[in-house]
Design a protein around this nucleic acid. Sequence first.
DNA 1: GCACAACATTTGTATGTGCAACTAATATTA
DNA 2: TAATATTAGTTGCACATACAAATGTTGTGC
Lengths: 143, 143
Amino acid sequence: MSESCKTYHECCLYFTANSLARQINEMAEDAFKITGLAPSYAHLMLLLIEEPGLSQNILSKRMNLKASTMTRFIDKLMQKGYVERVQEGRSVYIYPTENGKNLKKSINQALSILFDNYCEVMGEEFAVKLTEDIHKANTILKE
Amino acid sequence: MSESCKTYHECCLYFTANSLARQINEMAEDAFKITGLAPSYAHLMLLLIEEPGLSQNILSKRMNLKASTMTRFIDKLMQKGYVERVQEGRSVYIYPTENGKNLKKSINQALSILFDNYCEVMGEEFAVKLTEDIHKANTILKE
DNA sequence: GCACAACATTTGTATGTGCAACTAATATTA
DNA sequence: TAATATTAGTTGCACATACAAATGTTGTGC
């Protein structure tokens, strides 16, 4: 462990990463209210709008979620009429509907609001750098 | 948004932070098996061993969890005989039992294993720096 | 071409977590 | 001091998420 750490809570990536996720989730839920979707569903819709026809398998890998969780996410988005499933063999490919595609604008708006909100408290430079580093860590951890 | 970002998924702190939390949780669950506790319970026990007698309110603030979640965590830890509640007025103070205190060694061991594991993939320097930055972000976000 | 392995998805179940409404204790204030 | 507001904790409910087992599909070796 790093000698400069006062407590384990500050120097364990597990503790700090979870804490950050909970705090930023709170901000995100707020910002994404205008889309009518929870932030994680909005994230998924964005992936699908950018690249329609991804399989559930790929989607779960992209979002670091388990396949079973993805099934349930897609169920919800189908209920709302934002996506449709196309089964081919053992894979299921997901396409956004017209209504789904129309979400793009408000999702981007929400992202922008969220970004402004956390930059306001953390400073843009630090926020951008932190996000890049976390992204880098994610990439490494995925092997 | 930062111009250097290829996709929103890489430059939104919400997306990246959640992804990291899920990945590191997976590693942590593994490492903490030797303690017989889920990582978050271990975290809580560590706080209590270091500072016995914290109120549930304080505990939930320290861990960035809601009070209701803390009630349930403490319920579980009581069932296992690791902590006891002492009500005083409207506050409830939590103390580790002897059995609870005895967890300290294996929790520290698990922390050490976890640390080694993520350092092995990410490199120690990067991991320590990242953890510090995330901790800094947490502190700022708590206001 | 059949038996079996590998893979994608689904479903049942369990746990973590939050919100809103509730209870109980304390503080404020008229 | 009675009435009201604030605070700490609990409980009922909802949802996110994982794991394990089940289902259905494709590929492989014989």
